[in-house]
Nucleic acid binder design. Structure first.
Length: 737
RNA sequence: GAGUCUGUAGCUCAGUUGGUUAGAGCGUUUCAUUGACAUUGAAAAGGUCGGAGGUCCGAGUCCUCCCAGACUCACCA
């Protein structure tokens, strides 16, 4: 044995495990399985330090495997819709291109190629960190099987009235070219102004003067004596020749601004609701690329919002209608991907009616039928479920599950189609004008925009029955609509009820472990979808693990340059050292400040294990005739027994930080510093207790530091001339006598 | 606007149901060591456990308020 532990040996150990089939469980109906589905990392990027926290899952999985449970940890990767497309578009931009240069099929293929070349990176990295995943069951979110299940569920939800199309106000990023759910919008405080505009008989105060060209009313509080008699009258909207009504609306606060609000139903969520209530007109003045459109007077067309704002303010000023400007800071939604302001805009989108699903999810969480751990997240979960709004699931990007509905163009003449013609020019026109160019349209299709009420079919064949001109919806599903179905889909749930043996045995899963930042995005969706589709909660425990920060407690980010590459760390210090550094002494759910110092300290611990073992082997060599089993008891056994008990208890209650800290202290300061020192003068009778204690400690430490413990175990096995066996599949220790 | 979390040694953090002189790693100081390990060992310095009240025989641990920081959620012009 080398004088110090060599991390480079870890790759051989992983090979040993993988080749032995230790990661693949045997279905045994007499036993209760332990199942964990890996939160699929993005297929397009290498792992970051946060992914190294899959260690927590590996600890649970290895522990249960040693307990003898048929244990499945199922790996996979996520296509990560908008994330991936965003990254890919950056590459395109570097090459002087953009998404508009390609039809959607070509673009999809390009991204698929890009993802496929990068996909194996994450996989090899997870192996390097020692994760005992069953690679024979590896999945990808765009696998045809998963695709088919997602589509079947979509159809079922549609038939159950849980899916609908509507033209509602959505969060739209005109740069990314897609709608987002509320969760994907980040609110930032913006220092801006409150502009006071003279609308004739009254003044309005607004933070968005540019949208005035889309005003279709002015609202005042009906109890406000200043304006009461104006309700029901009409005024002429400045800068236009339109007339708009003054309406009475209780939600208007008389004390704010002038007590009169301009109402822009197509570009403000509140105004949208107001317009629905009062039956107002909707005038959308921005197109989905962010430019002002034909609904505004000629001179204001084709401007971005900030340009339009300037133009409108200039003209109002000139006309003497800009009466006052106050400083005002307020919250504005920004795109979580590109950081630009979100444009609230009416757009036809697909929605999930989420209230019935959320209600059931809230019930089971409330009743602890699924335990959320640490418990503080339970309250957060319930709060969110209470006020949840319908979930827009359509995204105007190509990288994802294309929504499985087909439009017949003869039945839907007003579908707006954008495509590349033979000469690669972008053409936008209505379906009714394009039937003669159908094949060109089909080949060069970029996007289509079907009006609300468009008739659609759930299969191409059905749509083809009445016309040969058929196009599939170009929107794709929100990534979370797909990954929300991950647990039952990966295990082989079948829409027709012919579920796979895996599904029947391993579902519902045991523990879902992930970071708390996707509690709503993912965990909540899985609970909702799982109950709806399978009638069962997809996991018994939702365990929220910590967030990894840098050594100073700051968020890691590429721009700050403080990221830690887990694989580099594994190469320099060993995967075990990294794993221990991420776990030892960390309270459940609290942040982890990961510094190189900390990793070095754990590297030293790993080396300590290595060298203590070396010492034990020396003793074995010294007394080749010593009794190896069934020897005398040793006073140290009782200390060891309480360690076995506390470690087992801590693992059962997810107290991994405590368990590992106890093991660290015990191994180093009880076993090495005290016990080993105390037996250095003893004879051959010490071999049995020494080997027993070491083997037991190796087992206890194995889930946390699998490589060094397995290495030593293999050495020990050879030295003792025992039949081949592996620590990974050896039984969890019980009380020693 | 609503909510959650954090504040313990110079730094990063443990401290399960309240119970004897509050712990670890790193850092600092002193000493040791050619035989498992310098990726080591022995020892030392260093904390009024954010502040103020309260409950209790007893509080870092429970309650109230205050201060400081982090985060999450949120359609108000």
């Amino acid at each position: 044995m080398d004088k110090t532990y060599q991390p480079s040996s870890e790759e051989n150990i992983y090979q040993l495990w993988e080749n032995s089939g230790a990661f693949t469980p045997k279905i045994d109906q007499s036993k209760t399985p332990f199942t964990v589905i890996l939160p699929p990392p993005n297929a397009n990027e290498p792992l970051h330090a946060g992914h190294a926290l899959f260690t927590v899952e590996d600890i649970m999985v290895r522990y249960h495997r040693m307990l003898g449970d048929p244990t499945l940890w199922l790996p996979g990767t996520d296509h990560a819709g908008i994330e991936t497309q965003f990254v890919f578009e950056k590459h395109l931009k570097a090459d002087g291109k953009s998404r508009f240069d390609y039809d959607r099929d070509t673009l999809f293929k390009l991204i698929a190629d890009y993802v496929n070349t990068n996909r194996d990176i994450a996989k090899s990295q997870m192996k390097r960190l020692g994760f005992s995943l069953d690679w024979t069951r590896e999945r990808f979110t765009l696998d045809p099987e998963h695709n088919a299940r997602v589509f079947a569920v979509f159809k079922k939800m549609s038939q159950d009235g849980l899916i609908y199309r509507d033209e509602k106000i959505v969060n739209y990023c005109t740069f990314c070219g897609t709608a987002f759910s509320n969760l994907e919008v980040v609110h930032k405080t913006v220092d801006s102004h409150l502009w006071y505009l003279n609308y004739g008989p009254l003044e309005v105060a607004t933070t968005r003067p540019e949208t005035m060209l889309g005003d279709t009313a002015v609202a005042v509080n009906p109890a406000d004596p200043r304006y009461q008699k104006l309700i029901g009258t009409k005024i002429k909207l400045p800068l236009t020749d339109r007339e708009i009504p003054i309406i009475g609306e209780d939600s208007v606060d008389p004390k704010f601004g002038t007590g009169a609000v301009k109402v822009t139903p197509s570009h403000s969520p509140e105004d949208y609701d107001m317009a629905k209530k009062h039956g107002l007109e909707f005038i959308r003045i921005f197109d989905y690329d962010g430019h002002s459109n034909d609904n505004v007077p000629q001179k204001y067309r084709n401007l971005f919002p900030n340009q339009l704002r300037q133009a409108v303010l200039d003209d109002l000023q000139l006309a003497g209608l800009l009466t006052k400007i106050d400083n005002y800071s307020h919250e504005v939604g920004h795109c979580y991907k590109c950081g630009r302001p979100i444009e609230p805009i009416t757009a036809p989108q697909w929605f999930v009616k989420v209230a019935p699903l959320a209600q059931k999810a809230a019930e089971v969480v409330k009743a602890d039928q699924v335990k959320i751990f640490p418990t503080r997240f339970k309250k957060q979960f319930l709060t969110w479920m209470k006020d949840i709004r319908d979930w827009p699931i359509s995204r105007q990007i190509v990288w994802g599950h294309r929504i499985p509905v087909w439009y017949n163009l003869t039945e839907n003449p007003n579908i707006l189609i954008t495509y590349l013609d033979q000469d690669k020019n972008i053409i936008t026109n209505y379906a009714k004008n394009l039937t003669e160019k159908y094949s060109e349209v089909a080949a060069g299709l970029q996007t289509l925009l079907a009006p609300i009420g468009a008739k659609y079919y759930f299969s191409k064949e059905e749509a083809l029955k009445s016309s040969e001109f058929v196009l599939q919806e170009t929107d794709t599903f929100d990534t979370w609509f797909s990954s929300g179905q991950w647990p039952y889909s990966t295990l082989g749930w079948d829409p027709n009820g012919n579920h796979s043996p895996d599904f029947n045995y391993f579902y519902p899963t045991s523990v879902l472990d992930t970071m708390w930042d996707i509690l709503f995005f993912w965990v909540a969706r899985m609970i909702m979808m799982g109950i709806y589709v399978t009638g069962e909660i997809p996991f018994k425990v939702a365990h929220m693990h910590s967030r990894v920060l840098d050594g100073k407690g700051q968020k890691m980010s590429k721009s700050k340059g403080n990221t830690i590459n887990p694989v580099t760390i594994a190469q320099n210090y060993g995967a075990d050292a990294l794993r221990l550094a991420l776990v030892i002494g960390v309270a459940p759910g609290s942040d982890i400040a990961l510094s190189e110092d900390k990793i070095r300290a754990q590297r030293n611990f790993v080396n300590k294990i290595w060298n203590a073992s070396r010492f034990v082997m020396m003793i074995i060599d010294k007394y080749p005739e010593a009794v190896l089993s069934g020897g005398d008891s040793d006073p140290f056994f009782s200390k060891l027994n309480s360690l076995i008990a506390s470690t087992t208890k801590n693992l059962n209650t997810y107290r991994f930080g405590q368990a590992s800290e106890d093991l660290y202290t015990f191994f180093w300061h009880e076993f090495c510093d005290v016990y080993i020192e105390s037996i250095k003068d003893r004879g051959p009778e010490i071999v049995y207790p020494l080997v027993t204690i070491l083997t037991t400690l190796l087992k206890l430490i194995h889930p946390f530091a699998p490589f060094v413990t397995e290495s030593v175990y293999q050495e020990l096995n050879t030295k003792l001339k025992l039949p081949p066996s592996m620590l990974i599949t050896s039984p969890w220790p019980h009380e020693i006598r």
